[in-house]
Design a protein around this nucleic acid. Structure first.
Length: 242
DNA sequence: TTACCAATAT
DNA sequence: GATATTGGTA
């Protein structure tokens, strides 16, 4: 069987590293002279699972955050990020795979429900298109990587095309919302092999209780992406790589 | 009121 | 074309 493994720590790592140059981030965030690009929280008591972080999340209680009015750069769905998305959907079951739940299971800091909703919408169209294809030809049911190169980068679980009522993963669905359970999920998922260096110390699992996510200084990562855009900066999680 | 979802906009 | 935003609905 093909293995569906979560991105290894090493693959997730880049999430918190690359991104934009601090200089650019400051250009946006600058308001206070002593601005702190990223507050690293104290070492986590427990080894955190996978939480990949997009950028800065918490807004300090410093007072007024201009970030509330700032718009985030467009999220770029890299194959790795998409993999995580598919993985979450696969383990949730089609029925429970709704934006909020997926977002929670993914545990990607900075990722919003809207981000997921938008991607999910497109992904569903992709699945539907595939179902249509597998009904007639007799040939391969694979779509063109040319058109769907992103979606083709991650294997589509078979049951995605075969909605089986009553077979959803309600256990995982129940787990969502419980940081510890989600942590276990991620751990068992293939997140072992943590780096001996303890390089990924991550304080929090997603964003449950302590952090306010709205109105903060969410993600500031951007890449000089040569998007089809005229100059809009895009959020790049990490270099596309398989 | 929140969240989903399809449509529409950038 | 990819992602964001909107509007109607549950």
């Amino acid at each position: 069987m093909v293995e569906e493994e979560l991105p290894s720590p090493e693959e997730l790592m880049p999430l918190s590293q690359s991104l934009i140059t601090p200089r650019l981030a400051l250009a946006f965030d600058i308001a206070s002279p002593n601005h702190r690009p990223r507050q690293h929280q104290p070492p986590s008591p427990y080894a955190q699972p996978i939480p990949a972080d997009l950028g800065d999340l918490v807004s300090g209680a410093g007072g007024d955050e201009p970030a509330r009015t700032l718009k985030r750069p467009r999220l770029v769905w890299t194959p790795q990020l998409h993999k995580r998305f598919v993985d979450a959907v696969a383990h949730l079951g089609i029925n429970n795979a709704v934006p909020k739940t997926i977002m929670q299971l993914m545990s990607v800091d900075g990722l919003t429900r809207e981000n997921v909703a938008s991607h999910l919408q497109k992904y569903r169209l992709y699945l539907k298109r595939m179902q249509g294809l597998s009904g007639g030809g007799g040939g391969g049911a694979t779509a063109d990587p040319t058109t769907d190169h992103l979606f083709a980068s991650s294997p589509v679980p078979p049951h995605f095309l075969h909605p089986v009522p009553g077979l959803q993963q309600q256990r995982i669905a129940a787990a969502v919302g419980h940081p510890q359970l989600v942590a276990q999920y991620h751990r068992q998922m293939g997140q072992f092999g943590s780096s001996p260096n303890g390089q990924f110390e991550h304080p929090y699992i997603g964003k449950q209780p302590p952090i306010h996510r709205m109105g903060g200084a969410p993600l500031h990562n951007q890449a000089p992406n040569s998007n089809g855009n005229g100059g809009i900066k895009a959020l790049t999680l990490f270099p596309t790589g398989e």
